[in-house]
Design a protein around this nucleic acid. Structure first.
Lengths: 225, 225
DNA sequence: TTCATAGTTCGAGGGTAATCGAAGCATCGC
DNA sequence: GCGATGCTTCGATTACCCTCGAACTATGAA
């Protein structure tokens, strides 16, 4: 009767609150162990184990064993994008888990999306890169221009290293709070990483919030504001 | 404990097979009545009614009453995009409802996505428009260039009419089979509509497949191939 | 080896929600 | 007005799956 891929199977995977909590926790980009995810989801390790198995089978998560630990991560950036878009729709429908408050404000300001910078800061940075012709959008692909490459090198990004990876260097990712694009891909990750190394900002330990220091904020604005 | 929008609520809406079937049926862009959707989902009208109510409450569908009929449509293009992306992930994980066959082949070739052209034809058309500088991608926004406007007028598109609508004229939409962008928005819809008016192609009554006539295909390729 | 920690498997229990039959409104055609 | 059709509400049934306790395997530390 119906043709095409089966949406409901994978949507129902995201549809369980415990699994959804695990997935959002992994949006930080950090790989987490099974027990950490169990705590994150508020369930016992046994329950978490079965959830994780199903998420892997559904192609949403991938695992890496290390000693007696099992680290989980989102299977692909596509998965992260879907989660981000779902957040956008959920936010529009008013389905927030908690009342809007200062924490949510901070999330809107700057947060981690998978492994790169999102929120107001993320989209502003992206817009600025495009505006200055450092980055060019061509169809669905993004690519750095020559001056863009120079800029990135000057900022301390090791470009050749990025090219080697199998993930595309530049990708767009839709932002749920801003409803516009920000930069994903290995360059997106490298930029955030560099911003942390410079001490401009640091990730919150438990949430996706990114906090800028006053000086860091100033430097960031000077470059991307 | 957790902050940000609640994904699971809306994902679980999509996660039910009956509702997922309804949503995919609406990806054709046509508004369907409650009973039609019931048939599409393979459930009785009573069951469908409760599903539709929940989908509306969740912000996924919007309704228009007309006499004793109640027409349903996807609430926004964002919803259509999420569904398309979910199909992409589901396809990658191998969760197809039926074996790959001729019908699936046709779907990959040319199909309706919400209300515009998707599949190989859709992405090819989009690429071509960008290539020829008829369309320019700027950040997350698309816009027609002057020669693009001339081109569209020449093709028989009533541009001023499109501008009046509240939906953005140009938008990108990610294609699950091609994993690249194609053109959405009111211009996307207008183009498909024009292609049908010219007799180049017609929509299949019951599926999302778009079938080109031999001459139509030739004309299309000449313009966008 | 022995103990502790990480993760899994198994089985039982329990709650949510999908489903349909029957009945109730609303609207259209006559 | 009357019947027919489209859609909804209500209640009862049923099935699925989320959950955890208990027992098991595997890795690491002492």
């Amino acid at each position: 009767m119906k043709y095409g891929p089966d949406i409901s199977r994978i949507a129902s995977l995201i549809g369980d609150p415990a699994r959804a909590n695990m997935l959002t926790a992994l949006m930080s980009g950090k790989a987490l162990t099974a027990t950490e995810l169990a705590a994150e989801a508020g369930v016992t390790p046994q329950t978490a184990s079965s959830h994780l198995a199903r998420l892997e089978q559904g192609g949403l998560l991938s695992f890496r064993k290390q000693g007696r630990h099992k680290y989980a991560a989102l299977a692909s950036e596509q998965v992260a994008q879907v989660l981000e878009m779902l957040m956008g729709i959920a936010a529009r429908a008013g389905h927030t888990r908690t009342r809007t408050g200062p924490r949510n404000q901070a999330l809107r300001e700057a947060r981690i999306c998978y492994n790169h910078l999102a929120g107001d800061c993320g989209t502003r940075m992206f817009d600025r890169l495009i505006e200055r012709d450092l980055l060019i959008q061509d169809g669905d692909d993004l690519r750095l221009t020559d001056i863009g490459k120079t800029f990135m090198r000057g900022f301390g990004i090791d470009l050749p290293k990025l090219v080697k990876g199998k993930t595309p260097m530049c990708r767009t990712c839709l932002d749920w709070s801003e409803r516009r694009s920000h930069l994903a891909g290995s360059l997106g990750r490298a930029l955030l990483s560099r911003i942390e190394d410079l001490g401009w900002a640091r990730r919150d330990r438990d949430t996706r919030i990114v906090t800028f220091t006053p000086q860091g904020r100033q430097a960031f604005d000077a470059l991307f504001g």
